[in-house]
Amino acid sequence: MNIRIRYFASLREIVGQNEEQLTLPEGANVSDMRAALLTRYPRLQPIMERCLCAVNRGYVTPETILHEGDELVFIPPMGGGRLLEVSLWNR
């Protein structure tokens, strides 16, 4: 299944793009995608440990099952530990 990943702030700087589409097997969850991204971009490790995640603009847990066409965002902390505002999706 194809999942759209959007990158913001430090994540975007590391991967060098705003978004991409990745393929996972049916039944995969957010944690599976996180593992796939860490394999693809090992430099994400320290940031991903502190990210929240959202699917289709709603916060979810790592155990959330993904579905074809979902939009997944890992929301990195900003300076001082604050989380990046989801309003960035509107950009």
Rank of each mutant, 00 (worst) to 15 (best):
P25R: 00
P77V: 07
M33P: 09
V73W: 11
P46T: 10
T39I: 11
N18C: 07
M33G: 12
M33T: 08
E68H: 11
M48W: 05
C51N: 09
V30S: 00
E71R: 07
T23N: 10
D32Q: 02
I14L: 04
F8R: 10
E20S: 10
E13H: 11
L66E: 09
A54V: 07
R82F: 04
I5H: 03
E19P: 05
V86Y: 01
T61I: 01
P77A: 03
T64C: 08
L44Y: 10
E68D: 15
A9Q: 10
I47L: 15
R50I: 11
N56Q: 08
L24M: 01
L88N: 09
N18Y: 05
H67I: 00
E26T: 04
L38M: 12
E19K: 06
V55P: 09
A9C: 14
A35C: 05
A36L: 15
A9Y: 06
E68N: 12
E26Q: 06
G80V: 02
E26K: 02
P62M: 04
R6V: 14
P76Q: 00
I3Q: 01
L84W: 00
Q21D: 04
W89M: 13
G58K: 11
E20I: 14
V60F: 00
Q45N: 08
Y59K: 07
F74D: 13
Y59C: 05
V15G: 05
I47Q: 07
I14N: 03
W89I: 10
P77H: 02
Q45D: 12
G27H: 07
L88W: 08
M33W: 10
E63W: 03
N56T: 09
D32T: 02
L72T: 07
I65T: 15
A28D: 08
T23M: 04
L22H: 03
I3R: 01
E49Y: 09
A35D: 14
M1L: 13
G80R: 01
R57C: 03
G69Q: 09
A28S: 15
